[in-house]
Design a protein around this nucleic acid. Structure first.
Length: 222
DNA sequence: ACATTAAGTGATT
DNA sequence: AATCACTTAATGT
């Protein structure tokens, strides 16, 4: 598997940064970001942040999608939410408020590009730049909203509804109607068993919402 | 042709 | 919805 590349911010990265964040950040802040930030390309499937790992960077996602996972003592996973372009990670924000170690795992759902900012600036810029402050607070809030949505789906939805939400969410972040996953992998994300997923997928296929293949699911409607 | 991995299914709790 | 036990299908060597 290809490995993560971290390099100085080049012209392509700057263009992407301006495209995604230019309307949010004032020029002086933009210059600071260009000065202290690094450009990272994370290939699909690579882990950016591991549970227990100290967080030293705050990511500004430019392109791609990142999935955020929680893990229990036995190593079973649970998908919390996805990050897309324009998003940043809530964990890297909370770590600046005293919490140094990550409680989540972040894995690239598809090859992703991002700007990494050393966490010390995250705090400093809060006082310096109003546009930074509102960005941080707004993304904290939208991350919290997604988080609550996931809680709701676990608490109030049946597994068949959760599965359908999982498939459509995934289609949204990857912009593809085909999902290339085994039933087992989906089961891990939703913290259930493979058999249950296979059965529910079969139901969805019979209902005309999807078609099934080996390692592949075609979504027929969103 | 054989082994391995993914997916499908009935039965039971 | 979870688990077991087993079958069938697809894919790799």
């Amino acid at each position: 598997m290809a490995h993560t590349s971290i390099q100085p911010i080049n012209d392509t990265a700057e263009a992407l940064l301006r495209e995604q964040y230019g309307y949010l950040f004032e020029e002086k802040l933009m210059q600071d970001i260009l000065k202290v930030g690094q450009f990272a390309v994370i290939p699909e499937g690579n882990t950016l942040i591991e549970i227990g790992q100290a967080i030293i960077h705050m990511p500004l996602l430019l392109e791609g999608a990142i999935k955020i996972l929680r893990e229990d003592k036995e190593g079973n996973e649970l998908l919390l939410y996805y990050l897309e372009h324009g998003d940043t990670c809530m964990m890297s924000m909370t770590c600046c408020m005293g919490q140094k170690k990550s409680k989540i795992r972040a894995v690239a759902e598809e090859t992703s590009k991002m700007i990494l900012i050393p966490v010390e600036y995250m705090d400093r810029w809060l006082n310096e730049y109003p546009s930074w402050k509102s960005f941080v607070f707004e993304s904290y809030q939208s991350r919290m909203d997604e988080f609550l949505e996931t809680i709701d789906s676990i608490a109030f939805m049946n597994m068949d509804e959760r599965l359908l939400k999982y498939l459509t969410d995934k289609a949204k972040v990857t912009h593809k109607m085909t999902i290339e996953n085994t039933h087992q992998e989906i089961a891990y994300d939703l913290h259930t068993s493979r058999v249950v997923i296979s059965r529910l997928l079969k139901q969805l296929e019979n209902a005309g919402k999807i078609t099934l293949h080996r390692n592949r699911i075609e979504l027929l409607e969103i």
